[in-house]
């Protein structure tokens, strides 16, 4: 009862309400004016093109270009210290728009995807049983990983953890990249301690899924699907797009017509189709 009375008494205290209102409004006004003054005093002139370029970028802030987020990349583009090739996800017409804003020539910006140049996994022998921290760098630090092949994917999945698009999955003991999800940002490339992940043109259908530079005898003892450098792919390629370099075939994608003859002919099945079985 007394509480209700008190409340009734207080609710007529218009002076108190006005005082509270006035003080709050006064603080707000003072702060507002101060912010206005400071913002005029501390105005920083910025190139308006930076905002325009940033608007055209994909905006995923993946960091694949090596700059802190898309805004950092946009600034570098305007400064001329970065090229458009560094971004793998902004689509071609947006890149053309950026070229228009910056007044530069459009370079070769053919879309690419990433592939893992190893398909050993469970088919590759282990030289010891690894029991340490679950990332590739730690495993690689211990005698080059547990795989018998020193060029092989260890399948600990550091690339899969690093991929911002969830495109990489470790299946059958090695990292497999889904070409439909890969945006070629390149974070996996810099994550992989074995440097196995490579960029190839998105239009390519085949890639070499082995990086072993060892000779045939050694490869045979380590891995069931490793390249034995027989050179058959280089011989059967109708366009002469494949050359053998350091015991692994290298495909020149400017000559490759995606006929698939090399993948059909490979006795070790280590020339693979990007999109699964043909």
């Amino acid at each position: 009862m007394t509480n209700v009375l008190l409340f009734a008494e207080q609710s007529f205290n218009f002076v108190g309400v006005l005082l509270a209102f006035g003080i709050t409004a006064g603080f707000a006004l003072v702060m507002g004016v101060l912010i206005l003054v400071v913002s005029h005093l501390c105005a920083v002139e910025e190139d308006p093109r930076i905002k325009q370029v940033e608007g055209c970028l994909a905006g995923a802030n993946c960091g694949g270009c090596g700059y802190p987020g898309c805004s950092g990349y946009a600034k570098a583009l305007v400064d001329g210290t970065a090229t458009l090739d560094a971004c793998g996800q902004t689509c071609a017409d947006k890149k053309a728009e950026i070229c228009g804003i910056l007044g530069v020539e459009m370079g070769s910006t053919e879309p690419t995807i990433c592939v893992n140049a190893c398909c050993g996994g469970t088919q590759c022998n282990d030289k010891y049983s690894y029991q340490g921290l679950g990332d590739c760098v730690s495993q690689n630090a211990l005698a080059g990983g547990s795989k018998a092949c020193s060029f092989g994917c260890m399948g600990a999945g550091s690339c899969a953890d690093a991929c911002p698009y969830g495109a990489i999955e470790v299946k059958d003991g090695y990292a497999q990249i889904d070409p439909a999800l890969c945006r070629s940002c390149g974070i996996c490339i810099s994550t992989c301690p074995k440097k196995l992940i490579k960029r190839i043109p998105a239009s390519a259908k085949v890639f070499v899924a082995c990086s072993s530079e060892c000779r045939a005898k050694e490869v045979m003892s380590q891995c069931k699907v490793g390249c034995i450098a027989c050179g058959k792919c280089a011989r059967v390629c109708p366009n002469g797009a494949i050359t053998m370099v350091n015991n692994v075939p290298v495909i020149d994608y400017s000559k490759c017509t995606n006929c698939g003859t090399c993948a059909e002919g490979c006795p070790r099945h280590c020339i693979k189709y990007v999109h699964g079985d043909k």
């Binding site: 702060m31 101060l34 912010i35 400071v38 913002s39 501390c42 920083v44």
Partner: peptide, 11 residues
């Protein structure tokens, strides 16, 4: 408000 101003000042 003050942090806003501090930010502009730092910038």
């Amino acid at each position: 408000s003050l942090v806003q101003m501090l930010e502009m000042f730092l910038k």
